[in-house]
Each structure stands twice: as C-alpha cells, then as structure tokens.
Amino acid sequence: MNEIHQSLPFLAPELLKKIEESAVVKEIPKDTEILREGQFVKVIPIVLSGLVKVYSRFKGKELLLYYIRPNEGCIMSFAASFKNDPSKVHAVTEEDSRILLLPVDEVASWIQQFPSINTLFYQQYNLRYSELLDTISHVIFDKMDTRLMDYLTEKSSLTKQNPIKLSHRQIANELGTAREVISRVMKKLEIEGKVLQHSNTIEIIQW
C-alpha cells in the first residue's frame, strides 16, 4: 500500500512488506472510541489521515493528553502492549480517520528483526514527552484564559476550522476543569475581542 510507504518512509523495505501483509487499514468514523482505559492493547494505531484524541479520566473528569496527527502513532498503546498492561488512557477519533492497525504480536517480533521500527517509537516518545511537559507547564503556570486560547488555537489549527464546533462542557472536560469556569473565561475572552461565540460554535478573532 503506497500510503504506508508515504507515512513510514524511514522503515526498511522488508519491514514495510511485512506490515502490508499483517496490518489492517480501517476507515473509522468521527467520535469512535478506539481504545479505553483498562483495555488490553491488541493493535497499535498509526494515523494515516484524520485526527485522534488521547485523554485520561479521573473522578469523572477528562484531561486531554495529546492528539495523534497523520503519520503519528500512540506511544501509550505501544508502552501498554510492550509490558502487556491494560491501557491507562482513552482514545477517540476527532474526525473521520484512516488508521493503520499494527498487530501487537507481530510488532514484538519486528522490534527484534528490524531495528528501524524503533525510530518510529522513539520519535513518538520524544514528541509526547515534550507535549506532556508543555501540558504540565500550562496547568501549573498559565492562567485559564491563556490555556483556553492556546487550546482553541490548537483545535482550530488541527481541524482547519474557524469557527470551531465546541461546547463549553466539552472544553471543560478536555482541560480538566468545570463548565462554569470555561463559560466565565470564554465571556472574558469575548469582551476582550479575542473570540466570538455563536449558537453552537466559537470563532477565534485574535490569534
């Protein structure tokens, strides 16, 4: 499959051939849960097109961890499968997505046979580690209005949409706070001329 070669050009040709033989490419609709907390990982997803959100849930609240963009994989799935542990995160498609599913059993043997596959996971580990540090920094040091604007800007950039269809409750879930807090801060941003709220969308005015 040519799209696999385009998404993973750094892998050895022999490994790409095995991936074509063993992996599955699936079209997954928007808002589909592809991984849940406590589930044992059987496949490792690589996004070919679309967008996947990865988040954790604690005491009924969600916290956005990162997005899996095209040509990226889920390092949390890889870590859980490598140790045969249940997943600690949830993953859901943010839009219609085309996803390459690597069978865990095969990946274990590929790691020994083809060292180049480690490049994929090392890249993802470094990327997610940097994003995690950014998230922690935002939570500890940034005020909620800064966090909210950064969130909206990233969401608009990822989805290539402005206005963005989002509810205050959804934003609150992803930022790990209360809906009332988001509504209050959103009103502040609107007064400052940074956003404009419509009936069911939010438009970013000032980037």
Rank of each mutant, 00 (worst) to 15 (best):
M76D: 06
D134F: 07
H90L: 09
D134N: 06
K187D: 15
L127D: 14
E180A: 08
D145M: 02
H5N: 12
L35E: 09
F82W: 13
E192S: 09
K83Y: 13
L8A: 07
P103S: 06
V52A: 06
T153S: 13
E154M: 11
L48H: 08
I117D: 02
G176T: 04
C74T: 05
E14A: 13
V195Q: 03
M144A: 14
I111E: 07
G73H: 02
K165I: 14
L101N: 01
I182F: 10
K155P: 00
H168Y: 15
L148I: 09
D150Y: 02
L64D: 08
V89R: 01
L16F: 06
Y67R: 00
S81N: 03
G38P: 00
V195W: 04
E62G: 07
V41K: 01
Q206Y: 12
E131W: 04
V185P: 01
K155H: 12
G73Q: 02
P103E: 10
R69A: 12
K155R: 12
I171P: 01
E21P: 00
P45T: 07
V89Q: 02
L51H: 07
Q161I: 04
L100I: 09
A79Y: 10
F121W: 14
E131N: 11
V195A: 05
S97L: 04
S87Q: 02
P9F: 13
A178P: 00
